[in-house]
Simulated scan of single mutants.
Amino acid sequence: MPFDTPPAAAQSRLRPRTVAYWLLSVAGLVWIMVAIGGATRLTGSGLSIMEWAPLSGTLPPLSEAEWQRLYDLYRTVPQYALLNAGFGMEGFKQIFWLEWLHRFWGRLIGLAYLLPFLWLWWRGAIPRALMPRLWLLFALGGLQGAIGWFMVASGFQADRTAVSPYRLVLHLSMAFVLFGLLVWTALGLLRPAPAALPPAEEARRGKVRRQVQWAFWLAAATMLAGGFVAGTRAGFTYNTFPLMDGALIPVGYLDLSPSWLNLTENLAAVQFNHRLLATLTGLAAAGLAVAALRHLPSGFARSAALVMAASVVAQYALGVLTLVHVVPVSLGTLHQTVAVGVLAAGLCAWHGLRAPPR
């Protein structure tokens, strides 16, 4: 098995805990990256840099001529003409710096992953069975950078003032996948496979594990729906709760044709679906808390399950607060950030309750 304890002769070289702490550090950087990305989206900063320059773009503009060149490029995109015309160099610099920080942080994550990885590999500290997954993570990180540019480029099209919601959801989903793989891999190194339990105890744990899985996948679906809320700016409409313009199901829920477009482009349907999935997740989390208190003894698994339930409730309340205040940048960014916390708590709970190997 990939996370079995190595033979004693190899213990002097392998450092699973060191590898785990490194992966968790990278996961923390990804978490911050998601927060910065949320602020970038909400401030409309993402289209301020019209060039994809993985190496030369590391440094910000160092002369007035370079600032002017980049500003002139930005003035060619529809967002400038339709939203920001005449806001001047100072206005441009405000949105530029946030997008530059977003891209710089992505480069920092790449270095924070690659350099320790090569050093640990050279030192023989990484279990051999783990190498394919670590190379996959590196490849997915590079792919995420390309997806980011693919998303940004969609905002340069005529009559667009923001990026494509489909590409935004793809970019956000990949960030969640990377974060999840990093955390799950680290947990596997820190907490090896559990020993076999008596059948009755394993049955009780199985009940809670299924509840965790339901809550986790509902939370993931809610995050996906939230990506379309963000991409279509649906959160700036229907800013009442729990009703939407006085109705439980908003008028015009199925206005678009073909009908599947309502799931991703109809503002009323997009926001309603996000609300519905969030409510189902909240109910699943409440059931999880009850199941954990009834069936689990004190310990990591019980604590992780209760933290997951609490994080879902906190995220639900934060979502309502963000909505009724018409998505201020601070609350919107925090809402996207706490979503990663829900994901982390769910992974810890699921991992703590996994069944022993056969």
Rank of each mutant, 00 (worst) to 15 (best):
W184I: 04
W184H: 13
W184V: 00
T185L: 12
T185I: 10
A186I: 09
A186E: 04
A186C: 00
L187K: 00
L187I: 10
G188W: 01
G188V: 05
G188T: 08
G188N: 03
L189Y: 09
L190H: 05
R191S: 12
R191P: 02
R191C: 00
P192E: 03
P192I: 07
A193N: 07
P194C: 03
P194H: 07
A195K: 13
A195E: 15
A195L: 14
A195W: 00
A196G: 07
A196T: 14
L197W: 01
L197F: 00
L197S: 08
P199G: 11
P199E: 11
P199H: 04
E201A: 15
E201Y: 03
E202L: 15
E202Q: 15
E202W: 03
E202H: 08
A203P: 11
R204N: 13
R204I: 02
R204V: 00
R204H: 12
R205V: 10
R205I: 06
R205E: 04
R205D: 07
R205G: 04
R205L: 02
G206L: 06
G206R: 08
G206T: 10
K207G: 09
K207W: 05
K207R: 15
V208M: 07
R209M: 08
R209I: 01
R210N: 14
Q213K: 13
Q213G: 06
Q213N: 11
Q213E: 13
Q213A: 14
Q213H: 14
W214E: 07
A215W: 05
A215G: 13
A215F: 04
F216N: 04
F216S: 02
F216D: 01
W217G: 08
W217V: 00
W217R: 10
W217K: 01
L218K: 10
L218C: 09
L218Q: 07
A219V: 04
A219M: 12
A219H: 06
A220M: 15
A220Q: 12
A221C: 12
T222D: 10
T222S: 15
M223D: 10
M223N: 05
L224S: 04
A225Y: 09
A225M: 11
A225E: 01
A225P: 01
G226E: 10
G226D: 09
G226C: 11
V229C: 06
V229E: 03
V229W: 02
A230V: 11
G231E: 05
G231T: 06
T232W: 02
T232C: 09
R233G: 02
R233S: 14
R233W: 13
A234K: 04
A234D: 03
G235Y: 03
G235E: 10
G235W: 04
F236W: 14
Y238R: 12
Y238P: 03
N239L: 09
N239M: 04
N239F: 02
N239G: 04
N239H: 01
N239W: 07
T240G: 14
T240N: 13
T240L: 06
F241H: 09
P242S: 09
P242W: 11
L243M: 13
M244Q: 13
D245C: 05
G246D: 09
G246W: 10
G246M: 10
G246A: 12
G246L: 02
